[in-house]
Nucleic acid binder design. Structure first.
Lengths: 106, 106
DNA sequence: TGCGACTAGTACGTTACACGATATAGCGTC
DNA sequence: GACGCTATATCGTGTAACGTACTAGTCGCA
């Protein structure tokens, strides 16, 4: 299925995952719940686990030991750095954009 | 070519374009320059014009009359609404994420 | 103790779209 | 009149976003 992007998204799955893990280690299913709770974005399993694999591959998250049912992941130091960087860029961008829209206090 | 997403992006072309237009109407090439200037993200022509077409199709931007060399676009009211909504979500997300990372003042 | 609901992850197929390359063309200038 | 910049269009490719379907463990609960 397509990315349901007829309506302009604002955050990529990879970033949502990193941000969720900033809270502490979580396994996949818990990330789905967490992300949905605080962004209303529902990641499908296909999206999630594929994104996690890529993040692991590029060293931004690392697998922890878990039982055979749960596979927890944690942010690596590099993952934290990347997340911090991206969030700052987002914050700056949002601030500038909102002020351009004439939003008070932005 | 792939989306150069080995390094986790934070903003989608469509949103960058909307934000750039929040400043006032611009034509494509000017958007490229503008976006690059304030995000360091360089949109290729393929990315840009394709994204603009989609945005126009979904009624978030509208073409203005220009000469035959320049095709300026403006934000529609719906485009403004969508942009405002996404930017607020981004700002909230960034704030929460940064505070999770223990960034002071977030 | 068998059923449903929830948890957890796998596997897969489709397709949107990010991206660079390439092409075209007007304009200034040197 | 060649070079560099502005400006847009188009095409091909690969990645990854996304939903669906599936498997399997666990926990009531009746």
């Amino acid at each position: 299925m397509p990315r349901q992007r007829d309506r302009v998204g604002w955050a990529e799955p990879a970033l949502l995952i990193l941000a969720s893990l900033a809270d502490g280690p979580k396994h996949g299913y818990a990330i789905i719940k967490d992300v949905e709770e605080d962004t209303s974005i529902r990641l499908g399993p296909g999206t999630l686990y594929a994104a996690i694999s890529r993040l692991e591959e590029s060293g931004l998250v690392a697998a922890l030991e878990g039982d055979e049912r749960r596979r927890p992941y944690r942010l690596t130091t590099e993952g934290e750095t990347v997340l911090d960087d991206r969030l700052r860029a987002m914050a700056r961008f949002a601030r500038v954009g909102l002020s351009r829209l004439g939003v008070a206090g932005a």
